[in-house]
Design a protein around this nucleic acid. Sequence first.
DNA 1: AAAAAAATTGAACAGTGTTCATTTTTATTA
DNA 2: TAATAAAAATGAACACTGTTCAATTTTTTT
Lengths: 197, 197
Amino acid sequence: MGKDNIQENLVNKGRALIQEKGAEFLTARKLSEASGYSVGTIYNQFGNMDNFILIQNYLTLDALYNRLAKLRASGTAYQRLNLYAQEFIDFVLENKNLWFLVHNFHLHNNNRRFSKIYLRRVVEITQLVENAFKSLFPDIPLPERILSLQVLWLSLFSLSAFLTTDTLDSFSKINKRSLCELLLNTYLAGMKVLEKL
Amino acid sequence: MGKDNIQENLVNKGRALIQEKGAEFLTARKLSEASGYSVGTIYNQFGNMDNFILIQNYLTLDALYNRLAKLRASGTAYQRLNLYAQEFIDFVLENKNLWFLVHNFHLHNNNRRFSKIYLRRVVEITQLVENAFKSLFPDIPLPERILSLQVLWLSLFSLSAFLTTDTLDSFSKINKRSLCELLLNTYLAGMKVLEKL
DNA sequence: AAAAAAATTGAACAGTGTTCATTTTTATTA
DNA sequence: TAATAAAAATGAACACTGTTCAATTTTTTT
């Protein structure tokens, strides 16, 4: 098949496959057929399928970061945190299959760690929110503020896995969007109280 | 191999395998070798491996429920909620591989739903906590209280996936136990505030 | 003891990720 | 340009999945 930018072609084609048909559809052979490159070429480019998925997840986190970063200067700190949450939920719902893969992979990956390549993105997103946190909770010392932030962000992150599937449909008729918003608002209210103690 | 209670033998042997060697180790052939029964016998008993895993997860949730139910009558409502959380965290940390499988499966299952067989257990655990909630937040109307409860429980549930792996080690030096406890206490403090509005 | 029914088996099928000798393409040299 | 060397692309083959089902073994009934 075509000569230049094999890696880019494969990444784009694979991304389209995931978005259209779901993360489970992505196999080396299916990607080979869909892209026109041989299975061997995929392995020459990425080493193994885990690395390929890692790149996809990096791109997904990158896209999320860019969406959130746009809101960097909007409203008060409290408004901004709510806008971040809204945007986060929108992003996840718009990219269910990609987001499913992010959750899916970090659970299945052999070493079960955030890979360095996308740990950086996770940290960057955390720092984005930390700026809003700093204004909102000036009285909480930095270490504890970071801790509270990490707990909130990880809670929303892990809870968002449920947004990508219909797992919850049989458990509760709860609206998925309000699920995350209720967590955020209740948690922030709690922080505000605990701040003053 | 032996005649009676094939199903029970397979479930027990499989459970030991998961606990000792991890969920990834459990395959039809490995279970066959370890148990002495043929692969075909496994399929005669369970139909497919998904059903086998479903039974394992049911047993895990059953064990969790029993651990929590013991605390049913202890302390004040607030104390009890903290005891529930403590016990929940202990259980997860003591049964990492089994709990990993619970999370793992509901994400990978084809239909991506809580199966009926263990949805009931999840609901039962929820009701256990709802009793403590009722005492703690008498002023919140039932529908909203249920909602808040489901959000908290699902947050802790999804967050607990991180307790089963070392995924977080590169993200934060945060103690995993305090992770869950901070979520609980901050969320409860927030509910207490929002209750009075 | 013979026949019928039930239970157990494991080779075989289609799928997965992955490897690597072979082929093809590209770049370099004469 | 032709011959040679280096690099890149290939896909059959390997070891592993879950799953099936004709053939075997065991148990039950007659």
